[in-house]
Amino acid sequence: MSSLETNLGKVKLKNPILLASGTCGVAAREFEPYFKLSDLGSIVTKSLSIKPRVGNPTPRVVEVSPACGMLNSIGLQNPGIEYFVKNELPYLTEQKVTCVINIVGETLDDYLQAVDVIKNKSEFCAIELNLSCPNVEGGLDFSQDPKKAFTMVSEVKKITNIPVWAKLSPNITDITEIAKACIDAGSDGLCLINTVLGLAINRWTKKPVLPRGVGGYSGPAIKPIALRMIWETYKKFPKTPIIGIGGIHTTDDAIEFLLCGASAIQIGTANFVNPKASIEIIEGLKKYMEQMKISSINEIVGQAHLQSEKPLAKSAY
């Protein structure tokens, strides 16, 4: 009998599939017509801030052809963490979902105030710190400066016992520097990766399509970028659980992420195309495990590194 039970340090999930923040509404209520939320490993809430945020003007999305994915600039629209706790959290509890709460802010103090609201609540299996939103002023600072990342994670760890995951940006030269800072500060896991900075131009208006110019690139095209960053991070820090995100659409994608070093994965943009993507991947993983006679999904995490213990080929000059 193969088990999908997933170990992420202190966090145990029934399977390794989560819905990614910003791709499942505020509290994933919209999935009700498609499947039971409790069938998932967990869900990650919309990024929540201490004060509600209106979000950016439209257009907020633009597709990247041919079939590469999309750019978004939502601007962290959310009803605020207090509203969430009062009006959305009871729904998740009723659905028997222990969720991951994603927290965002503009300053360190914003984050700490938001964490303070939920620091003692047992309804959350982890806090995901959004250190990497490209769509607000200063949103990337915390994941581009190791010192700032260190301060953020260690200050949050001081006030809560809920496991803390840092969600990192790919918009950096060496992701392992930030990863190290977060791990040194006590981060219980790392979520890799957030969206990749991109831009689209409208040839008729001769202007960028999105009102802020830049947007966050997501979808199938960013999968290799995510895999590369997970690969590098796992290689240096094999003991820190990695939650992989970036262009995962099928079971095959999910397996690749696990083999690369992610202990769990989040389904993001694929939800937009297929609301049942996450559930189909869980079914697909079960089949793969039976086929390959794998008893626990945790066994395959990082296995691609074992296969390449001999150094990978160097390019010839």
Partner: peptide, 11 residues
């Protein structure tokens, strides 16, 4: 412009 059509992307 919308990405999902069922309320999750907020576009």
């Amino acid at each position: 412009y919308m990405a999902c059509g069922y309320g999750v992307c907020m576009s």
